[in-house]
Amino acid sequence: MSAPQEELQKTPLHALHLELGARMVPFAGYSMPVQYPAGLMAEHHHTRTAAGLFDVSHMGQLRLAGPQAAAAFETLMPVDVIDLAPGKQRYGLLLTNEGTIIDDLMFVNRGTELFVVVNGACKAGDIAHIQEHIGSRCQVQPLPDRALLALQGPKAVDALKRVLPGVEKLVFMTGAAIQWQAAELFVTRSGYTGEDGFEISVPAAQAEAFARALLAEPEVKPIGLGARNSLRLEAGLCLYGNDIDTTTTPVEAALTWAIQKVRRTGGARAGGFPGAQRVLAQLDGTEAIARKRVGLVALERVPVREHTPLQDAQGLQVGEVTSGLLAPTADQPVAMGYVPPQLSAAGTRVNAVVRGKSVPMEVRTMPFVPNRYYRG
């Protein structure tokens, strides 16, 4: 007899998704909407032209509190946490002792504490890792009683400022606490679509009412995980578990922009994070990397999916696609994958092997669609 399937968790918006006709699928241990009746293509285009509402409540939210919180958190990541100003948000990477990526995350300095959002599939492990390593230096408090919504697209600000007046003052990668009907929300101007937009942490009890208030705005439609994936790939953004994982270092993953200068060279705060010796050696070139994440565009109209092998001109396998699809806005097959550094320059040709057929691909700079973050 096979073991019984583990019961899927439900987000606070589960009943609303069903009411809206969502097709639900298992994702990161949750029952999540992959698409609504309009379909993935329409949802993708709606987000690029108006405003899409995503339920991302499967993500892990936590707070790190206490005078040592920033200094403690900085010991786990190759990122400048200490100098992050109040109200500002930053991208971070939890690393193993080998310098590989446990998870990528976002964090905000809320003045008296750090607010952290981690990936849904990784959250139990992340919280345990953070608790084990810095729980003696600061309070590590998971926030399972909060939902997380993302409102993304060029008209997101128009819709949200009617519901939350003043939210338009935020710029990309900043956040603020805002009251809504006596509920304490925390809003950041950020997201994972390449568009302007917001992520809103809301108490679970008020999540459905707040989502309905947003959906009542004419610009806003519900968007599922399918379009979230195509949007983030066009934006050149990694999906943990596909494009980055515990086999990849930040340098291999082309995420060196996330490692601030203060953590790299000289100075009292250089290094001092897990795997620092390896990561810093790869950064300065004293340790060569065998592969690098690149953007790829197929030169024939053939979608190239994850795990597709990549070959050089001689037919030798040189790498693998980690994410790929026919991009709705770019209107061409795009992908991310890993190739040797000598094949990572823009314009380099490789071949993908799709069902035994060789499909020519070209290395391209990302994003595939220009980002439109609001920087003020």
Rank of each mutant, 00 (worst) to 15 (best):
Q311A: 04
Q317G: 05
D331H: 15
L316Q: 15
A288M: 12
R291G: 04
L280T: 07
V294S: 00
G267T: 15
T329R: 11
T246A: 11
K261V: 14
T265D: 14
I223D: 04
R278V: 07
L283I: 15
V318T: 02
A227F: 03
H307W: 15
D284N: 13
L237Q: 11
R232D: 01
V251D: 03
T322M: 03
A281E: 10
L237R: 05
V279W: 01
T247V: 04
T308F: 07
T322Y: 04
I289M: 14
L325G: 01
E252M: 04
D284L: 03
L239F: 10
C238R: 02
Q317C: 08
L316W: 08
T247D: 12
E320A: 09
A335E: 02
I259V: 11
G241L: 09
G315Q: 00
M336C: 06
A276L: 05
R305L: 13
L326D: 02
R291E: 09
L239H: 00
L280M: 10
K292Y: 11
T322Q: 08
E287V: 14
V321P: 05
M336T: 06
V279M: 00
R232W: 06
H307G: 00
I259M: 03
G271K: 03
L255I: 07
A298M: 09
G285R: 06
Q311G: 00
L299F: 03
Q260S: 12
G275H: 11
A335Q: 10
L237P: 01
D245T: 04
D245L: 08
G295M: 07
L326F: 09
L280H: 09
L283E: 12
A268G: 15
P333M: 04
T265K: 14
T322L: 01
L316E: 15
L225P: 08
A258V: 10
P250V: 05
G324W: 05
R305Y: 15
T247M: 04
E252D: 08
A258C: 15
L325R: 03
Y240Q: 05
R291V: 03
L299K: 11
D245I: 06
Q311F: 13
F273S: 02
G275W: 06
T246L: 10
Q332L: 13
T329Y: 12
P303E: 14
L280A: 06
Q282F: 07
T308D: 04
K292I: 13
P250S: 11
T247E: 10
A298P: 00
T248R: 14
A253I: 09
L325P: 02
G241H: 01
Q311M: 10
E306P: 08
L239M: 07
E252I: 01
